[in-house]
Design a binder for these strands. Structure first.
Lengths: 197, 197
DNA sequence: TGTATTATTTATCATTTGTAAAAAAACATC
DNA sequence: GATGTTTTTTTACAAATGATAAATAATACA
């Protein structure tokens, strides 16, 4: 976990993260709070399995997860999510279709979540909640576009260096095997890059 | 343009595309129609330049565009959009920030569009319009995730074959240079793949 | 038609990345 | 501390892709 600049600052929460997306009415905040659940996962536990419908929008209170998919032989990591991230598997969550992706806890992880049906109902009831959720989706799209741009423009060495720059803190918590799956290269290749040859 | 199965079917329009995302009230449809504009671009004209704020959500009535960015030496194509596609540059449009991406007409292209401010106002006024827009964003995210998955899992040959499968019709309308910029390989490499060596 | 321009292919060589197997290092457990 | 397991690195070789330059094909247009 990142050291917080001022420990008197309140810890980010699902609600505070949502409020940052769009300003919410008091009544919306009350209703939102009423729909939240919490859950803990051990290291290695799955939050979502292949083929399952993703029913939850997650906020990580503590811990680290990866969203990934696999073929016969290899694994491919879409993203890591750590403390204070708000995330889901967008396509499965939105359309309630079987997920092509899985979510796994890389550490003991505590989450706060809301169920898809409850969020959908809140969107209907509170326009501001739908606005916040829309904002979240536009941020998600933006992040994905950045990732595509980087994959197009940069080679493996540049992508590794960018990861160090943008996610240096995570490096200590992620195995190099997982990092290579995220970068889209083999672990051997990543090891080569790190050794600077 | 794809031959339409039954030519008595009405042509897709901005409004019909939007209605497919979420059901709109009559009053929302009326307001939406009142905010639409049309414009034509010659082949080679830019719909959006680097650093400009993307102010419009576009629907293509006819023609073909590419969304791309460049560094000193190379160009990278995010996506092609052809008839009946609804699109914008999400980050620039949503946050009204300078765009890292450009949009260029690859053919004479006619669009229907709505201005960001007008859409934002409509989202405020009509909950159903915001729902439709949210749906559009979740589809955009899903498309981006698919693209990332493919870039991670597939090599250049597989990506080319997938493009043929998914966008075969476009192949006739896109230069192989542009296709290589989309696939993330050089034109020489694409030529090699096509020749099957 | 002829010419200029652009797009595509081919050839050659360098670099990057992948594959497979083994070695080394780090970690966990008894 | 000894042992077994997992992670990471190293090595050697193969395959894919990039860079450059030249050849060919397609297109535009005077």
């Amino acid at each position: 976990m990142l050291p917080r600049a001022n420990h008197t600052l309140p810890m980010p929460t699902f609600v505070s993260a949502f409020c940052q997306l769009a300003s919410l009415t008091d009544s919306a905040i009350t209703d939102l709070k009423g729909m939240l659940h919490t859950k803990s996962y051990d290291k290695g536990e799955k939050l979502l399995s292949y083929g399952e419908r993703c029913k939850r929008l997650y906020f990580i209170d503590e811990g680290l997860t990866k969203t990934f998919f696999s073929n016969e032989s290899k694994e491919f990591i879409m993203r890591f999510f750590s403390e204070y991230a708000l995330f889901t598997v967008v396509d499965s969550f939105t359309a309630q279709t079987p997920s092509h992706y899985e979510i796994l806890a890389l550490e003991k992880t505590s989450v706060t979540y809301i169920n898809q049906q409850d969020l959908e109902a809140l969107c209907k009831k509170h326009h501001c909640i739908e606005s916040a959720f829309r904002k979240l989706l536009s941020i998600a799209t933006t992040n994905m576009m950045k990732r595509i741009s980087e994959m197009l423009e940069e080679n493996a060495t540049e992508r590794y260096n960018r990861f160090l720059r943008d996610n240096g803190q995570l490096l200590q918590r992620i195995s190099l095997g997982d990092l290579s799956c995220y970068l889209g290269i083999t672990q051997v290749s990543l090891s080569r890059i790190r050794s600077g040859k």
